[in-house]
Amino acid sequence: MTSTDIEITADLVRDLLNDQHPDLADRPLRLGARGWDNQQWRLGDDLAVRLPWATPGADDLLLKEHAWLPSLAPLLPLPVPVPQRLGVPTPRFPRPWIVTTWVPGTPADQAPLTRAADAADTLAAFLGALHRPAPADAPGGRGRGALADQADRFAEQFAAVTGQGLLADPDGVLAVWEDAVAAPDRTGPAVWLHGDLHPANVLTRDGDLCGVIDFGDLRAGDPATDLASAWVLLPDGAVDRFHTVCRPAPDAATLRRARGWAVLGALDGVLIGEAGVQGRPGGKATWGPPAHAALRRLVATTADA
């Protein structure tokens, strides 16, 4: 159910298309995925309909994608979902929605990256292309500023996972976090960020990256936020190569901050994988293994430093 108590069905999506984009209404339609914020319905072979269905803030995230992704997508070396049409609120469905291109592939939480060198190179190339200075009117994030501003979030996550006995080395995780928040803040210009590069938002084929989806957290900020994804996405032995091939090469302070962002993302993954999040029932079991692997890599990195 949506926040407006309207059930999203194939018939509803078809009616919305008939009303606003009738040239697309006859295409085959089937449910693609239900995320935290949006439902995605595949439309034919090359399009998808994304509709907000849970959190009220999802409306703004879709409108942000529609506003910014068409200009950013041509600059990126991997396929991303490019908005093609905008659906406006109506009494039938009083929220905005979009039609985007469909990006084929399997989410990395279901088909992890296995080609270490290729995956490291592909991720570095993607972030190098994305992390260009953002314009002054670029959007901000959902309460995500400097890493030090996330202290309460970390404390809540850490208490939850340790209280449930879900961490193999809580002292090691705490040491990674404390080192990260002690790192100098970024002084360079804010760059474009994906902002949510967890395994379910990265697509794979044959062990390598083949696409990136869900740009709802697209914003300007510190590249350390996205560089954190290396520990969460890449297989063992690939993170060092990723840092070597990144352009521009991240400095030591950026990598320290990135480890902190990686801890936050991994703790989210552990909690979601084990028991769900934010009052939603159940969890997503496929989120747990990559999150635990990321924490193991992060602790080992700090121990070797």
Rank of each mutant, 00 (worst) to 15 (best):
T2K: 09
T4Q: 11
I6K: 10
I8E: 02
I8Y: 02
A10F: 00
V13P: 06
R14A: 12
L17R: 10
L17P: 07
H21A: 13
D26I: 00
P28F: 07
L31S: 14
G32N: 11
R34T: 13
N38A: 10
Q39R: 09
Q40M: 14
L43F: 09
P52L: 03
T55H: 08
P56C: 07
L61R: 04
L62D: 06
E65W: 03
W68R: 09
L69H: 03
A73P: 08
L78R: 11
P79D: 14
P79G: 11
V80E: 03
V80M: 06
V82D: 07
Q84K: 13
R85V: 01
T90N: 10
P91C: 08
P91W: 09
F93S: 04
P94S: 10
R95A: 13
T101Y: 03
L113D: 02
T114H: 03
D121C: 01
D121K: 01
T122H: 05
A125F: 01
F126R: 05
G128L: 07
A129N: 08
L130T: 07
R132H: 15
P139Q: 11
P139A: 08
R142M: 12
G145M: 13
A151T: 14
R153S: 06
R153Y: 07
E156A: 15
A160G: 05
A160D: 15
T162S: 09
G165Q: 02
A168P: 03
D179S: 15
V181M: 10
A182Q: 13
D185V: 13
G188C: 12
L193M: 03
L197K: 00
N201F: 01
R205D: 13
G211A: 05
I213V: 15
D217C: 14
L218Q: 04
A220G: 15
P223T: 09
D226H: 05
D226L: 04
V232D: 00
L233Y: 00
D236I: 05
D236C: 06
G237Q: 11
A238H: 06
V239K: 03
F242H: 02
T244K: 06
R247D: 15
P250Q: 13
D251S: 11
A252F: 07
T254Y: 02
L255N: 02
L255F: 02
R256E: 14
R257P: 09
R259H: 10
W261M: 08
A262P: 00
V263R: 02
L264F: 00
L264E: 05
D268K: 03
G269A: 13
L271D: 02
I272W: 01
E274A: 15
V277F: 15
G279W: 13
R280D: 14
G283I: 01
K284L: 13
K284H: 11
K284Q: 12
A285Q: 06
W287N: 12
P289S: 12
H292V: 13
A293H: 10
R297H: 04
V299R: 01
A303P: 00
A303T: 10
